[in-house]
Design a protein around this nucleic acid. Structure first.
Length: 801
RNA sequence: GCGGGUGUGGCGGAAUUGGCAGACGCGCCAGACUUAGGAUCUGGUGUCCCCGACGUGCAGGUUCAAGUCCUGUCACCCGCACCA
């Protein structure tokens, strides 16, 4: 019998599917719809690695199964092509980013097609296509119109190597997300999107969707809602109200000092009345010099300076407390000022110890001579709060006190900050705003979109944080759309996250030039039924895109508030050395090499069989050979094929059990055990020595989503029909049960024997059979039976003394 | 520091949620077929002092029964990080 010639057979079926539009989604079809979404790739020069293949294979299998189950499936793919790596390559090689991108997309497309993914290739999108980014700009202008876009001169995260301002999300840990250089803080006027306005909606929306628990938790933590109180402290010398935020208003009686951020404006306002202003300036300068690393990693030692000339008055005790500046208080969270309660806050405690400040205990339960006590307990030294025994009641009481005195109220804070929405680089969507000396910031009219990225010769960034676009006079100089006078265009471009914030909407109607997508298409397809991607996108792309989508919902532009009904995440594919795959480590596996050597079906089966889908697992070529053996054994079954329209008695329960297992495991993303079940089935069929047509048909359909090429080939040659047009197989729960089953017999919890019993046997009968077994009888000999347990279909345990 | 996760053979990993630990695959061992095998097939493979006992990071506990539940503890991984 001929060997399985995967390279020609795979090509044959890929051509067939493409010619016949087998995977085309049909908007408006009467069939139930299923929208499966995978994160579209950033087409880098390195090409895809096998991690991409694993990421797409999960929903690929689900999508193919859904089609066989009669669904109209939308399983699209595209390219998120704006971004710095491409531009950096262009700068280095002198090749224009447009060409770099086109080459990379071609490379990725080739790789994806060779694996045989059932994407609807008629809906491919490219975020750098002007037909696409026209609508990215359109949504931006809608936000601008609705007050969600603003400019602000603030301290920003700046990457000196990439020469761009980064969002908080892109500069986690003080490192640039793109080049991993140290971030510096810089004052700059930049664009922001008011995502904080949606903080509560983004949080509440999590109740409506089905995300994996850890994904939900990460988003909740990222939004970081905290409830507490704002309290105003009066500055004795000038009557200024110094406003603080605290989550522990119950400890107000324990306040012995205050701390404000070094950049707090009150210092500038009263610089003339501060005696030690030189010392404060010196401290401030020192803090500005510190890198993010020093500020966050070397937190052991508290530093600070007491302000000589400003004293605060505690609004509830009327006592005077000193004010310090210290860099452990940040301007970016709360009000940039805190009330310090050393007895019950670890940081305040350290600070107080170092500076010799009083520590007043207001909650019983700890030993404040040793450390701060942050637990719950009875209130003491706290006026009208004394005797209250828990935090919740104490906070409620204190809020009443504050309200009565009119010096504070309940408040809410979020860790999430507004989204720094700009790049000073070439390869991004131009921000469609004109700066007019008379009218200020004016939106480019909608009918002038897209505002095209002009062709340039030199896309090197400027040295002063200016975009390369600033050097192009024809682009910059323009007329104000409002007054017609001379004006200048904004030269910043959007960050790389812009295009991906709404791409799932475009897939619904990718060629529309009247709207980002028609209402009809959006109503039909949205929301995404199942979205799978990497954990690394849970706090950035996911939050950003939920924000854009919720905004569009509020504008009446999309039919549902949450874009993704369900979200899962796959684990990484590690290199053979167990390390994360990276070019520098030289442990990257190219899917094309695997397809060349083993075929696409082997690659597909292996990435899903290598381990728990959600867990990271190292690549192993020898392990993959097991998957090749499996498919070779499936191919070789053609030699063992016999006639038969029904499962044979010796296979019937195995067939039904396998269908059940594979059907359920695919839905639970337990692809490894689904494949294992099919391997077991094959092993059993080999030991029987033959397979009939009914069994073959079922096997091929079950295996098809995983290994579509080999199964299509076998199906068409055996049954003369196209597998992709068949129906998913069904199982009967009643037939999953064998007529006789094996149960273990334990005596005092130790296995003594295994006996075969009729599946329907009742306890008495089973116990009788168990005791009749020689080994069991021997173990029972001369003992008193204390208890007898039969777990139906599993085991018998006889307890003796 | 806080939050989350993981810990099972030589390796990747299973275990119907309290019921036969190690499914399936890799690797390894033996045999068959071969001029040959890094191909294929068959059988074996947790450990040990192998008629028995011990085994799911470690120490206790609950239970007829614990990888699974409870208490304590260690190690590693991921995320956030002076968030007031």
């Amino acid at each position: 019998m001929e060997r399985y010639d995967y390279s020609s057979i795979e090509k044959k079926w890929q051509n067939y599917w493409e010619e016949h539009g087998t995977f085309k989604a049909e908007t408006g079809s009467k069939k139930p719809k299923f929208y499966a979404l995978v994160e579209f790739p950033y087409p880098s020069g390195a090409g895809m690695h096998v991690g991409h293949i694993k990421a797409y294979s999960g929903l690929e299998v689900v999508s193919r199964k859904r089609r066989l189950e009669g669904y109209n499936v939308l399983f699209p793919i595209g390219f998120d092509a704006y971004g710095l790596p491409t531009e950096n390559t262009a700068v280095k090689t002198g090749v224009h980013p447009r060409l770099v991108t086109d080459n990379n997309i071609a490379k990725f497309t080739n790789q994806l097609k060779r694996v045989g993914f059932s994407f609807d290739w008629s809906r491919v999108i490219d975020t750098t296509d002007e037909k696409y980014y026209r609508w990215t700009q359109w949504i931006f202008l809608k936000m601008f119109e609705n007050g969600l876009v603003f400019r602000d001169k603030t301290l920003v995260n700046y990457c000196p190597s990439c020469k761009v301002v980064l969002s908080n999300e892109d500069s986690q840990g003080g490192k640039c997300d793109i080049c991993h250089s140290d971030i510096v803080q810089k004052t700059k006027e930049v664009w922001y999107l008011r995502i904080t306005e949606y903080a509560d909606k983004l949080l509440q929306g999590l109740d409506e969707v089905n995300y994996l628990p850890n994904i939900r938790l990460q988003q909740e933590n990222w939004i970081g809602k905290s409830t507490g109180a704002f309290v105003n402290f009066t500055v004795k010398e000038n009557g200024e109200q110094l406003r603080i935020y605290t989550t522990r208003p119950d400890t107000l009686y324990g306040v012995t000092f205050m701390v404000i951020a070094p950049e707090h404006p009150i210092i500038e306002k009263y610089r003339d009345s501060i005696a030690n202003i030189d010392a404060l300036d010196a401290y401030k300068a020192e803090c500005a010099k510190k890198s993010e690393f020093e500020r966050t990693q070397l937190v052991k030692d508290k530093t600070g300076v007491k302000i000589d000339g400003l004293t605060a008055i505690n609004p509830v005790t009327e006592k005077e407390v000193p004010i310090y500046i210290s860099d452990y208080v940040m301007m970016g969270y709360g009000t940039g000022a805190i009330m310090a309660v050393p007895a019950h806050d670890t940081r305040d405690y350290e600070f107080a110890k170092k500076f010799g400040i009083d520590i007043i205990e207001v909650i019983k339960g700890g030993d404040i001579s040793k450390e701060a006590y942050t637990g719950d307990g009875e209130m003491i030294n706290s006026g009208s709060l004394n005797g209250i025994s828990n935090k919740k009641d104490a906070i409620a009481k204190m809020l009443d006190v504050l309200a009565e005195k009119g010096c504070g109220e309940k408040g809410v804070q979020y860790k999430m900050k507004d989204w720094a929405f700009n790049r000073q680089r070439y390869w991004g969507e131009p921000i469609p705003i004109v700066h007019c000396p008379k009218c200020g910031m004016v939106a480019v009219p909608y009918d002038e979109l897209p505002l095209k990225l002009p062709p340039v010769e030199n896309f090197q960034p400027g040295t002063d944080g200016e975009s390369p676009l600033a050097k192009i006079d024809e682009f910059v100089n323009c007329k104000c759309p409002k007054c017609g006078g001379d004006a200048k265009r904004e030269t910043d471009t959007m960050p790389q996250w812009a295009g991906s914030s709404w791409y799932f909407l475009r897939y619904c109607d990718p060629d529309n030039d009247q709207a980002f997508a028609s209402q009809e298409a959006l109503k039909y397809w949205m929301p995404v039924d199942w979205y799978n991607g990497g954990m690394e996108h849970v706090t950035r792309h996911m939050i950003y895109s939920r924000f854009w989508h919720r905004f569009l919902y509020d504008m009446g532009e999309v039919p549902c508030d949450e874009p993704y009904a369900k979200r899962t995440a796959q684990g990484l594919v590690l290199g053979p050395d167990g390390e994360k795959m990276s070019k520098s480590k030289g442990n990257v596996v190219d899917p094309n090499d695997v397809v060349d050597q083993y075929g696409a079906d082997v690659l597909r089966v292996y990435v899903l069989f290598m381990g728990d889908y959600e867990q990271a697992a190292p690549w192993s070529e020898t392990s993959m050979k097991g998957c090749k053996r499996f498919l070779d054994r499936v191919w070789a079954l053609r030699e063992k094929l016999i006639d038969g329209d029904e499962y044979r008695p010796e296979t019937v329960s195995l067939m039904h059990k396998t269908i059940k297992k594979v059907t359920e495991d695919i839905e639970a993303m337990k692809f490894n055990t689904a494949i294992a079940a099919m391997m077991s089935l094959i092993n059993e069929i080999y030991s029987i020595g033959s397979i009939n047509k009914a069994e073959m048909k079922t096997l091929l359909i079950l295996l098809n989503p995983f290994a579509p090429h080999i199964t299509e080939e076998m199906y068409s040659s055996i049954f003369g029909a196209i597998l992709s047009e068949q129906e998913w197989v069904k199982y009967d729960e009643k037939l999953c049960i064998d007529s006789t089953i094996e149960v273990a017999v334990q005596v005092n919890g130790k296995i003594k024997a295994k006996i075969n019993i009729p599946a329907e046997a009742e306890q008495d009968e089973v116990l009788g059979l168990a005791k009749a077994d020689g080994a069991v009888a021997a173990a029972l000999d001369g003992k008193n039976i204390v208890k007898e347990i039969y777990v139906k279909g599993r085991l018998v345990n006889i307890v003796v003394k």
